[in-house]
């Protein structure tokens, strides 16, 4: 069983001495502060971005950040490793593509339906799978992801197979969403909303219940928490959100291949969570940014790319085993004292 008790809770509880009214205010401020900061950052990026390529990267980071947050709920708070989230991403992407391109559904309806379908699938397999512990769970989710990947690669008549399939440009209220600049605001809004919801969830009773889930099950159970129900619920929500972003990504890029469903993609997603910091909502956003940008930054190294990428992973984990954000926050707190 993996030991994730060290995962840092993002919010420390306020000092006991504070009067209740003030505490409440401070609480909501603390909760809203980061959300406002992220909102400002999102609003600022287009001003700094120099080209359409930068906006493209920003959209990709946004998409990955939402997935990383949803995966972090599962990994960081509920202590459940999933190596199959790329599979859910692909359900969203291919579901949207197939329903709209092959069956003539409105793309947004297709997007909604496939996200819900991914959630339902996760719900259905969740109960038996989530009883597994640690690496066994990792294996089971990996298997689930691989099966989804193989179906997509093999059913050429439906998915276009390894050559991929195209989606037409999405039009909403007469506006053609054909550029990164336009998609940026949509993805930015979803990210902000997810971020806000995740922060609230972490502080709400269900969040506390979730954190209890990463400890020994017996303990959580004795505290009256319905373990499997909570785990399954968070797994389903996480899968649905991931599928939603998979679908958004597909509509944005207009072309999808099974590659986006494969094992390495799942690894990248989990990497975002661990590098950024397990159990830190902001960490998930930072992790998504780094993992998305790193290959682009390193591509100028040509043949040294994989070597340098590997060294970076090792160094971060050796010096910041809790992830970038929790470690940095810890250092800042220490510095202030």
């Amino acid at each position: 069983m993996t030991n994730m008790n060290e995962a840092v809770a993002p919010a420390q509880s306020a000092p006991i001495a504070t009067p209740p009214a003030l505490k409440l205010k401070a609480d909501s401020l603390r909760r809203l502060g980061p959300v406002v900061a992220l909102g400002l950052a999102i609003a600022l990026v287009p001003l700094i971005a120099g080209s359409a390529y930068h906006m493209h990267m920003a959209v990709m980071i946004g998409i990955h950040a939402v997935i990383a947050i949803s995966l972090n709920l599962l990994v960081g708070y509920a202590g459940q490793i999933s190596l199959g989230h790329a599979g859910f991403m692909a359900i969203g992407a291919y579901g949207t593509a197939i329903l709209s391109a092959r069956y003539g559904w409105p793309p947004l309806l297709g997007l909604g339906v496939s996200s819900i379908a991914a959630g339902l699938l996760a719900f259905a397999v969740g109960r038996p799978i989530l009883r597994l512990k640690g690496y066994y769970l990792a294996m089971a989710t990996l298997g689930l992801g691989m099966i989804i990947y193989l179906v997509i690669s093999n059913e050429v008549w439906l998915t276009g197979g390894p050559d991929g399939m195209s989606l037409s440009v999405l039009t909403v209220f007469g506006i053609e969403l054909d550029s990164a600049g336009k998609w940026y605001w949509i993805v930015g809004a979803i990210l902000l909303l997810t971020y806000w919801m995740a922060r609230n969830l972490v502080d709400a009773p269900i969040g506390r219940a979730l954190r209890a889930l990463e400890g020994p099950d017996a303990l959580a159970a004795s505290a009256g928490i319905d373990i499997s129900w909570n785990k399954v619920r968070i797994f389903a929500v996480s899968a649905a959100l991931t599928a939603l972003m998979g679908g958004v990504g597909a509509l944005y890029s207009g072309f999808i291949t099974p590659k986006s469903a494969d094992f390495m993609q799942s690894i990248e997603l989990i990497l975002m969570v661990i590098l950024g910091g397990m159990g830190s909502v902001f960490g998930a956003v930072v992790g998504a940014g780094i993992v998305t940008m790193l290959p682009q930054v390193l591509t100028s190294l040509e043949h040294y790319e994989s070597l340098v990428y590997g060294v970076i992973l090792i160094l971060v984990m050796v010096f910041m085993p809790k992830g970038l954000v929790p470690t940095t926050a810890h250092l800042i707190r220490k510095f202030r004292r």
Binding site: A49, G50, M57, A58, V297, T299
Partner: peptide, 16 residues
Amino acid sequence: GNILKAAFGLSIGVMT
């Protein structure tokens, strides 16, 4: 240069 640029403005130009 690349890393700095990436950190500050998503600017990831290359001068190989």
